[in-house]
Amino acid sequence: MNEVVSFFSTTIRLAAPTLLAALGIVFSERAGIVNIGTEGMMLVGALAGVIGSYVTGSAWLGMLIAVFVTVLFSAIFAYFTVVVKADQTVIGTGMNLLASGLTITVNRALFGASTSPPEIDSFGIVAIPGLSSIPIIGPIFFNHHIIVYLTFILVPIAQFVMFRTNIGLKVRSVGENPKACDTVGIRVGLTRFLSILYSGVLAGMAGSFISMGMVSFFTEGMIAGGGFIALAAVVFGNYTPRGVMLSSLVFGASNSLMYRLQALATNIPSQFLLMIPYVITIISLCIVSRKSNKPLGSGKPYIKE
């Protein structure tokens, strides 16, 4: 029983950063932007969070700084894809490489290449009084980092904003038919730009949660595909916040399964266990790629005639 509880609790905890980042990507994807640079944005957020927490002594201020820096970083992506109208995938790849190079350079300059990581303030577990003492349900759902609660609360809000408000309508139509939007006076470029910045906010939060919640240090390349998996979660979740939550939970479960099998010390080599999340991601993409809600204008820069 204990193992089942810990499996589900770990699933939720591991799903959170994927979900948080994916809730940002789902808006920029709906606006017609293929944001393959999320991985780099999360990496930048992870380092900025650690630096912020190290300097200010507070994990919350660290996350705030991470969000600020990541938004600036995502503005570079937005500038190249929306204003210069360059190829989104190539720019995204460039952003990932840029993030990798910058974080290594800055991390080594600040903390040295091989010394032990600095002591920083990080997010602790907040058990919700009362609810967390319910047997089984309590430890699974109400004994997490505060960011985990915030992430899951954000899901219905994002769902509401995307499908019930003017903002959501604008974002969706800009991705679906930019030309028509332009005709009726919706500012295509601005909407896309802002949706990228918004995905930057959440990617920064997700990245800094990984470096200050999952662990409390930064290592080079520590996102290890988390940004790409978040992108896959959006595709697998069929471009809705609710769907993204479900797909993030599937990916969280595959990670959780990996840890569980590792702990069981089976005969399966650990490398094959470490592959599980990546393999599940590939399988999930193959399942959903037909009949998807992918916007028609996805990946194409809008050029006014």
């Binding site: 293929v34 393959i36 995938t89 595909g225 790409f228 992108l231 896959a232 595709v235 990546y278 393999v279 991601t281 590939i282 993409l285 193959c286 399942i287 790629s289 037909r290």
Partner: peptide
């Protein structure tokens, strides 16, 4: 399956 090569190649 019509899956996008971007994420698959990275995975």
């Amino acid at each position: 399956f019509g899956a996008s090569e971007l994420i698959i190649t990275i995975m």
